[in-house]
C-alpha cells in the first residue's frame, strides 16, 4: 500500500527585501495511514510553514507532494477542493482561529453547508454528532466562543476539522495555548479520535514531551531543514544530532532529583535569509569542524534513523 502522504524535496522560500527566506528547504518524508508524524523545532524553524505548504494554504517553491499516491503538487481547482475535504488543520490559538461572531453550532456546521448536497436536517444531525464526538455538550449549541474557555474552544476547532471526515489533519501546536490539565484532555481526545476514525496526523509542536507522547515518527527541524528523523522511541533513546541533543536537554524536567546535564548551546537561531550552504546549526554547535561548512546530507546512520551531521558517527561512537 502506498503511503498516504509523501513529500519529496519540498521547498518554500519567501521573498523578502534582503533576499530569499528559506523557510522550508528540501524536506522529505512519507507518512502512512493511521500514523502520527511529529514535527519539532523552535520558533522560526519552518515547522508551521511545512504544514501549511502541504495543505496548499501557501504554494510551494519546489519539490513534490503526493497524497494517496497521486501527485498533488499543482492541483487543479477541482482537485484542490477535493483535497481540502481530505486534509484539514487544527490551529494553535483557539482564541483567534474561530470567528467570534458565529456560535458553536454555526462554526461546526459551516464546512458541511459549504460542501453542499446535505439537507438541513442532516446538517443539524451531523453537527450534534460532531459536538458529542469532541465532548461539547449540546447546551453550547448557541454559545459564542468568548463565553468558552480555551479547552472548549479547541474542541470546536477539532470538531470543525473533523466535519468532512478528513483522512489527514495537520495539528499546528494544538495544545500549546492550554493549561496542562486541559492539554491532557485534548491530547487524549485526539488519540481517541485517531483510533476510532483511523486519522493520520502531522503534529507540529515545539514541545518534545508532547511529541513523544503522541507521535510514531519524529522529524527534528532546524532552520528549514530536517536534522534528524527516526521513530519516536528510537529518537529519545538514541538522540544523535547535536541540535536534537541540546533541545532535549533543555527541557526542564519535573523532577528535582534530575541529574540530566544541560547541554548549553550558545546564541540563538540565525537568520534563514540567504543561508550559507553548510550546516545551519554550525554557529551554535559544540562539535563544529571544518567539514561542517559543506552541505549536510540526511544519512541513514542506523536502521530507519536519519541524521544530517557529518560528525554524527564520530560524536556518538557508531
Amino acid at each position: 500500500m502506498p503511503a498516504l502522504l509523501e513529500v519529496k524535496d519540498l521547498k518554500k522560500y519567501f521573498k523578502t527585501s534582503n533576499g530569499f527566506l528559506h523557510a522550508v528547504d528540501g524536506v522529505n518524508f512519507t507518512l502512512d495511514e493511521g500514523k502520527t508524524l511529529g514535527v519539532v523545532g523552535e520558533s522560526g524553524c519552518g515547522k508551521s510553514t511545512l504544514g501549511r505548504t502541504i495543505l496548499h494554504l501557501i504554494d510551494s517553491t519546489g519539490g513534490k507532494i503526493y497524497f494517496e499516491g497521486k501527485d498533488v503538487t499543482d492541483p487543479s481547482r477541482r482537485q484542490l477542493s477535493e483535497l481540502r475535504r481530505k486534509m484539514q488543520i487544527i490551529f494553535q490559538d483557539p482564541f483567534s482561529s474561530i470567528n467570534p461572531r458565529m456560535s458553536v453550532s454555526e462554526t461546526i456546521m459551516e464546512p458541511l453547508q459549504l460542501r453542499g448536497g446535505l439537507r438541513k436536517q442532516e446538517i443539524v444531525e451531523r453537527t450534534k454528532e460532531l459536538m458529542a464526538t469532541v465532548g461539547l455538550a449540546e447546551r453550547f449549541w448557541r454559545t459564542y466562543p468568548h463565553e468558552l474557555d480555551g479547552g472548549r474552544r479547541q474542541r470546536i476547532g477539532i470538531a470543525r476539522a473533523l466535519a468532512l471526515n478528513p483522512k489527514f489533519i495537520v495539528c499546528d501546536e494544538p495544545v500549546s495555548a492550554l493549561d496542562v490539565s486541559i492539554q491532557a484532555q485534548i491530547l487524549n481526545l485526539m488519540l481517541d479520535l485517531q483510533e476510532q476514525r483511523g486519522l493520520t496526523y502531522m503534529f507540529v509542536t515545539h514541545d518534545l514531551s508532547v511529541v513523544k507522547y503522541i507521535s510514531d515518527d519524529i522529524l527534528v527541524m532546524y532552520l528549514g531543514q530536517v536534522v534528524e528523523k527516526a521513530e519516536s522511541d528510537e529518537l529519545f533513546r538514541m538522540t544523535l544530532h547535536p541540535y536534537s541533543k541540546a533541545l532535549l536537554s533543555a527541557i526542564p524536567e519535573p523532577n528535582p532529583h534530575s541529574q540530566r546535564k544541560l547541554i548549553s548551546i550558545k546564541g540563538e537561531i540565525t537568520s534563514p535569509i540567504n543561508p550559507k550552504p553548510g550546516c545551519r546549526f554550525m554557529a551554535r554547535c559544540p562539535y563544529v569542524a571544518d567539514r561542517c561548512k559543506e552541505p549536510q546530507i540526511l544519512e541513514e546512520v542506523m536502521p530507519n534513523h536519519f541524521v544530517a551531521c557529518c560528525r554524527c558517527r564520530e560524536i556518538n561512537d557508531i
Partner: peptide
C-alpha cells in the same frame, strides 16, 4: 515532587507527558 499530597497536585503530575517514562495515556484532571 516525591510525595504530592493534594489530589490537584497529583492531577497536575498525571497530566504531564514525560520524557523518561512511556505513558500510553495521560490522566487528565476532569
Amino acid at each position: 515532587y516525591d510525595n504530592p499530597g493534594h489530589p490537584y497536585t497529583r492531577g497536575l503530575f498525571g497530566s504531564l507527558p514525560e520524557l523518561d517514562t512511556d505513558k500510553t495515556r495521560l490522566k487528565p484532571i476532569k
